[in-house]
Simulated assay, not measured.
Amino acid sequence: MSRFKSFDGVSIYYQRWGRLSAQPPVVLHHGYVANARINWVIPGFVRRLTLAGRCVIALDARGHGRSEKPHDPAAYGEARMAKDLSCLLNELGLEEVDLVGYSMGATVALLAATQEPRIRRLVAGGIGGNTLHLDSHFHVEGRKALSRAMLASRWSIRNPTLAGFRLLADMVWADRKAMAAQALAFHSTRIPLEKISAPTLIIAGDKDPFAKQPRKLQKAIRGAQLKVVLGDHSSVLIRPGFQRAIVDFLQA
């Protein structure tokens, strides 16, 4: 259990499991509201990776888990989280890693892969074709509604998706002001996917409403593979097929 100061002074918490081997470490980045423990440890994914002989590193994104939690939206956004990843690699002196991101973390991973040459293999899970249109009016208004939901009375929220995120925030004791700030700062410009050179796997649950049309995202990344498995946005994380597909891809 360790911390480092990122490029702008925000303190980032991370953990390591397993031993260094001939293969590069696997870095894991979780989704919105969650943390490394919720997304990766409890579902058994960290254990599966270490049993496969991999060293695993997972961080809590700024505003999440045990990392520092500013309340200013200017401190957030996936582009800043991608810089946090590079700072983590610098902190640990790593020359090559495999990167796995889920949901918000998948957007972070894609952004990191457009500018970070130390990423050997890339996995983006829980996102789909909508990633190509982050600047749409629908997404802008959705971010504002999510931010409001984080600060409102839970019983006043009528939209089931917003209510679900708010319930998760309450369940994991998230800092809701930090979550509201990140909601306003969600990435809203085009990701230059053509700059990604690392072999990439796009993986999504067949019933995941946040990962519709994943083939569109796959086609936008040169040479990317696509795997669709059983599950929705939450349940897919514990599915053996989901975990096995990622481990097999990273072992190649």
Rank of each mutant, 00 (worst) to 15 (best):
69 K>V: 02
171 M>W: 06
160 P>D: 08
17 W>V: 03
187 H>S: 03
104 M>G: 11
94 L>C: 12
159 N>A: 11
118 R>S: 01
201 L>S: 06
146 L>P: 00
228 V>W: 03
141 E>W: 04
140 V>W: 11
41 V>W: 07
56 V>E: 09
41 V>R: 11
184 L>D: 14
183 A>K: 00
193 L>K: 01
224 A>Q: 07
132 L>T: 04
7 F>N: 04
190 R>E: 15
29 H>N: 05
215 R>K: 12
61 A>T: 10
26 V>N: 01
90 N>Y: 11
66 R>T: 01
198 A>P: 08
102 Y>H: 13
13 Y>M: 04
52 A>N: 10
203 I>N: 05
194 E>K: 08
178 A>D: 00
112 A>Y: 01
248 D>H: 15
135 D>N: 09
79 A>W: 10
24 P>G: 08
244 R>F: 04
144 K>D: 05
48 R>G: 09
106 A>C: 01
182 Q>M: 14
176 R>Q: 12
139 H>Q: 14
59 L>V: 07
61 A>S: 15
166 R>A: 15
179 M>Y: 00
95 E>D: 14
88 L>F: 06
198 A>I: 07
149 A>Y: 02
245 A>K: 11
192 P>A: 05
63 G>M: 03
152 A>K: 04
53 G>A: 11
29 H>L: 13
7 F>G: 00
16 R>K: 13
196 I>R: 01
54 R>W: 06
2 S>E: 13
66 R>W: 09
70 P>Y: 03
12 I>Q: 02
245 A>W: 03
240 P>S: 08
54 R>Y: 08
248 D>N: 15
81 M>V: 08
182 Q>I: 00
170 D>Q: 09
81 M>E: 09
161 T>G: 12
17 W>P: 05
128 G>S: 12
10 V>T: 14
232 D>A: 09
224 A>S: 13
87 C>A: 15
194 E>H: 13
151 L>P: 12
47 R>D: 15
243 Q>A: 14
200 T>R: 10
161 T>E: 13
118 R>V: 07
84 D>N: 11
221 I>D: 08
246 I>K: 02
31 G>T: 10
18 G>V: 02
246 I>C: 06
172 V>N: 06
86 S>Y: 00
25 P>A: 12
102 Y>M: 02
165 F>W: 15
200 T>E: 07
115 Q>S: 14
49 L>R: 06
46 V>Q: 06
244 R>A: 10
173 W>V: 07
82 A>K: 04
11 S>N: 13
150 M>F: 15
252 A>R: 15
27 V>S: 03
226 L>Y: 11
236 V>I: 14
28 L>A: 06
14 Y>T: 05
209 P>Y: 07
183 A>H: 02
148 R>V: 07
232 D>G: 12
17 W>S: 08
175 D>P: 02
2 S>V: 09
247 V>T: 14
181 A>E: 05
156 S>E: 14
235 S>A: 10
125 G>F: 01
32 Y>G: 07
252 A>N: 14
27 V>P: 03
203 I>M: 04
179 M>E: 05
63 G>N: 06
50 T>N: 06
6 S>V: 03
8 D>T: 08
11 S>H: 09
65 G>E: 02
5 K>M: 03
46 V>R: 05
205 G>P: 10
51 L>E: 15
198 A>S: 15
34 A>C: 13
163 A>H: 10
79 A>S: 12
23 Q>G: 07
243 Q>P: 11
112 A>Q: 01
123 V>N: 00
222 R>N: 15
148 R>Y: 03
56 V>F: 11
107 T>L: 09
